[in-house]
Design a protein around this nucleic acid. Structure first.
Lengths: 147, 147
DNA sequence: CTAACTGCAAAAACTTTGCACTTTT
DNA sequence: AAAAGTGCAAAGTTTTTGCAGTTAG
C-alpha cells in the first residue's frame, strides 16, 4: 500500500502537469480519495467534502471522479446498487464484498488472476483488456459474529 | 447447454409446483428466456414480448424476473450500464464481454473458478457465497475485423 | 369467487447535462 | 482577461412501488 501523503502529492502533481486546475474542491476530493483506505461511494465522498466545503455539489464530485477516471487514477467498482471508487489501486483487481457488513476488501491475488486471464484468452480466443472480479460472502469478522 | 424446449417446460413446471400463476405474459417471458441463448436485458425482453403482447409493461417484466431470481432460475448480470439475465445457467459463472460488439459469452471455466475461489477463501478467511467474474475485451470476431 | 397478477403512472436512486456565475492561471 | 471549473436545477436511466382493475385457478 502506498503512503497516503505520497499518493496525494502524486495525484496533485499529475493534475498540475496535465494542466488541470487545482481548485480547493478538487484538492479536497483528491485528499479524501488518497487518504481513504476503503472504497468510498460518490455520496460518501460528497458527505465528507461537505464538512469542509458546504457548497460542494454532487455534480462536481462526479465530474471530478470522471476526470480522475480518465486520467487512470481512479478505478470505478460498479456494484449492484451504486458505484464505489478506489483511488489507490486504479487498476483492475479482485474485490471481496461482505454481504453482511457491506465492507469491501481488496484481493491480492495477482498470480491467480494472471493465470485465469491467461486461461480465458487461450480457451476462448478473447483478448482481455480489463476485468471485474467480485467475490461476495462473509468477511472473517461477520463469520465470527454469526456463531 | 440444455435443450430450450426442455428448459422451458422445466421452468413452467417449477412455477406450477410452486403454485405461481401461469399467465400468458409469464409464459411468454419464460419461453423467451429459455429459448434465448444470449443474455437479454430487461428492455430487450420487453421489446420481444410486446410483439406478442402489446399491452405488456416493463414493470411486469421486472416483477417476473424478480420472481425467477427468487426461485433461483435466473441469474442477474449487473454490468456498468444495465443488467442482463441468464435463464439457462442460473448460477454464477464467468462472462466474457466484448467491448466492441457488446456480445456476452459464457466462460466455461469451472476448475479455474473453483481454484480461485478456494484461494480467496484460504488467503483472506472470507467465506465466498457467490461471485461475479467479468472479463472485458475483444471477442475473436472483432479482433479479426480490427485488422 | 378470491387471491394473485397486470398495467399504469408515479417515485426512487444514481448519474449526467446545460448554463450562468465564479475562480484559477 | 480567458479558459476552466463550480453549483444549481433539470433531465436521463434503470428499477421499484402503489393501486385499481383484471384474471387464473
Amino acid at each position: 500500500m502506498t503512503d497516503p501523503q505520497a499518493r496525494f502529492e502524486q495525484l496533485i502533481a499529475k493534475l498540475r502537469t496535465s494542466e488541470y486546475r487545482l481548485t480547493p474542491q478538487r484538492v479536497e476530493l483528491i485528499r479524501l480519495i488518497a487518504t481513504s483506505d476503503g472504497h468510498p461511494s460518490a455520496s460518501e465522498l460528497y458527505s465528507q467534502i461537505r464538512i469542509q466545503f458546504p457548497t460542494m455539489s454532487l455534480a462536481t464530485v462526479y465530474k471530478t471522479l470522471d476526470l480522475l477516471k480518465e486520467l487512470g487514477e481512479v478505478l470505478e467498482i460498479g456494484l449492484r446498487d451504486d458505484s464505489h471508487y478506489d483511488g489507490n489501486k486504479p487498476y483492475p483487481h479482485p474485490h471481496l464484498i461482505c454481504m453482511k457488513c457491506r465492507k469491501i476488501m481488496d484481493g491480492e491475488l495477482e498470480l491467480a488472476v494472471k493465470n485465469i486471464v491467461q486461461e480465458v484468452e487461450q480457451s476462448f480466443g478473447f483478448q482481455i483488456l480489463k476485468h471485474q472480479l467480485d467475490f461476495y460472502g462473509l468477511c472473517p469478522d461477520c463469520q465470527k459474529k454469526k456463531k
